[in-house]
Design a protein around this nucleic acid. Structure first.
Lengths: 154, 154
DNA sequence: CGCACCTTTTACGTTTACGTCAATTCTATA
DNA sequence: TATAGAATTGACGTAAACGTAAAAGGTGCG
């Protein structure tokens, strides 16, 4: 079975559904396109986040899978766990208004935003403490290099 | 053997060295005083970060241990791994100027500071993206409650 | 004496998101 | 056809910092 021969992913017709411009890509290409590893894509599938088609045992990703992956990556970026992402995605219903999904997403987002802000506060705090300690250490070091001792140490 | 009977840790003489005002406390009190669990103290010891005396099998912490614990907690707060903390502590030599220790600490601190700043940048970024997504979702929701249809993830 | 409470050691469990083989199969190409 | 390059499933490994039993020993007190 022939697909998009690796390296020339443009202007071709597959023997898969020729109905629409259904671009099928295999896992390698998918991984490169989104900067993830094969392992990651399989892992996401294992966790129910992706559901690529199959040609025998070979995974075939469509642009729906790409859209989903984009969402996953966005979710990861903003700090959601994959579980959260899955929960939100699982609520998607192509035939409805997805109000529930959106509400859940918003709810989770608010909480996540709070977490992020708290984290930032912690980090700022840590930066402060660390800077403090550093200046103290520098002070101690300068005292050492300026005082009595004729040191030869490193 | 009698120590500081739990609950009254003041004005007492132990049958341990009565030479100096060596305050020995057991693990429970130590844990309470610093807001950590017993498990944590044992874990730190197991990792070579603490080295309390022993009365038989019972751990006895002195104020040196307290000082070390404070450092550990500070290290943790600013984001050092316990391994880092140990590395720095291991260089401590009560008979020298500890220049090497201070240099190492400063070096590690600089790197850690950089990491923290990078993290903060990532978090700021995440906050931005998340806020963005949230306003989009809000928009979609308001459209749903007012108009026919639209579509989200898939 | 006996209970309650503190302490001990040992050691497996937890969490998250994959990494890293390993053994095998499929496919494309020279 | 031989060989290199993808892909597959399976399954153990990793990192960090403890959590959580389990089983048992010490101790002051009423």
């Amino acid at each position: 079975m022939k697909l998009v021969s690796p390296g020339e992913a443009a202007a071709n017709t597959n023997d898969i559904p020729a109905e629409a411009g259904e671009e099928f890509v295999r896992i390698g290409e998918m991984a490169k396109k989104y900067g993830v590893t094969l392992r990651t894509l399989r892992f996401y599938e294992d966790k129910g986040l992706l559901n690529p088609h199959r040609d025998g045992s070979t995974r075939l990703y469509t642009r729906r899978d790409k859209a989903r992956l984009k969402l996953i990556l966005l979710g990861r970026k903003v700090g959601f766990s994959l579980r959260d992402v899955k929960q939100m995605m699982d609520l998607y219903d192509p035939t409805g208004t997805n109000t529930k999904q959106l509400r859940l997403a918003l709810d989770k987002s608010e909480k996540q935003l709070a977490r992020l802000q708290k984290q930032r506060a912690l980090i700022d705090d840590a930066i402060g403490e660390l800077s403090n300690s550093m200046s103290i250490v520098r002070q101690m070091l300068s005292e050492r290099t300026a005082a009595p001792q004729a040191s030869a140490a490193g």
